Simulated assay, not measured.
Amino acid sequence: MKRLALSWSGGKDGCLALDVLVKQGIEVSCLVTTVPYEIGRTFGHGEKMEMIKLQGEALGIPVHFIECTFEEYTQRFVQDLMELKERHVLTGIAFGDLYFEPHREWGEKVASEAGLEAVYPLWMDEKSALNALKTFVDSGYKSTVIRVREDVLDDSWLGRRLDTFFLKDIQHHNVCPMGEAGEYHTYVYDGPLFKQKILLGQPVVVKLETTKKLEYRDYSLITK
């Protein structure tokens, strides 16, 4: 039986990958998130570590943080994967990438170096991205936009739910509907695999380099 780690940044892609894997009968033993040593935020979305821990608790899946610098990112990723392979008896690691080939090449490289299979449950043609967004909108998972690239989407998109209105409106912009180039990032707070729901409150907007991010100052788990 396959036992996988899943690369996790807290957004819709990782969640959709998790959903596909579970439906295939594959066990996801842990979620893996990279964080810079000095910042305490995720590399992927600039999310606070506490918010990722909360998702792991809500899903009932342990989260492992790979703490590293940008320079030693790959080396530490491989080292930690090898440790996780022994701890969880892993056969592979899954990634939520959709079609960006350099990301897949990197993922296959680190998996191979750790002696694991690289799994891409969402892999598709670029033209299928809109259908992928529709799949997520129809999936029952609840997600909100927490970060936007200012050169393509303004901050009115922050805090928007990924629903049928979002699906319609995103098609009027020159972006990947799934935000594969980092046009927007999301945070998933509820859905079919969530054993508890994450309640979010007191949002504030902060500026991070070329992006704006929505931060929640109040967050907690509630019984479903």
Score class of each variant (00 low, 15 high):
G92W: 04
T91D: 12
F65G: 05
H88T: 07
K48L: 15
E83N: 12
M49I: 14
I66P: 07
I39R: 13
T91P: 10
T74N: 09
L98D: 02
E86K: 15
T33A: 10
L84N: 00
A94K: 00
G46H: 02
D80P: 09
H64G: 09
G96K: 01
F43C: 11
R41N: 08
F95G: 03
V63W: 01
Q79E: 15
D80T: 14
L54R: 01
D80W: 01
G44W: 03
I52L: 08
M82S: 15
Y37W: 12
C68V: 08
C30L: 06
V35K: 02
P36S: 12
L81I: 09
E50N: 10
T33C: 10
M51P: 02
L84T: 05
L84Q: 00
F95D: 03
V89F: 13
P62F: 08
L31K: 05
T69G: 15
V89A: 15
M51T: 07
E86T: 14
I93T: 09
F95N: 00
I52A: 06
P62H: 10
F65Y: 02
E47S: 13
I39K: 14
Y99R: 04
I66S: 04
R87Q: 15
D80Q: 12
T33Y: 06
E50L: 10
R87V: 10
Q75W: 11
R76E: 15
T74M: 11
T33R: 02
G40P: 07
E71T: 11
R76I: 13
A58Y: 01
R76P: 11
H45T: 10
E72I: 09
K85L: 07
F70Q: 13
V78Q: 04
T34E: 08
F70V: 13
D97P: 04
P62E: 11
K85A: 05
R76K: 15
G46R: 02
V35D: 05
V32W: 02
A58C: 03
V35R: 05
R87F: 10
I61W: 01
V63G: 03
L31E: 04
T91M: 01
G60E: 11
V89G: 14
K48S: 10
Y37A: 09
R41W: 07
V63C: 07
E72V: 09
Y99S: 11
V63Q: 06
P62N: 13
R41K: 14
M51Y: 05
F77Q: 03
Q55R: 08
C68Q: 06
T34W: 00
H45C: 05
P102H: 12
L54T: 07
Y73S: 08
G56T: 00
H45M: 08
C30V: 04
I52R: 00
V89T: 14
R41M: 11
I39S: 12
L59V: 04
L81R: 02
V63A: 01
Y73E: 07
G60M: 08
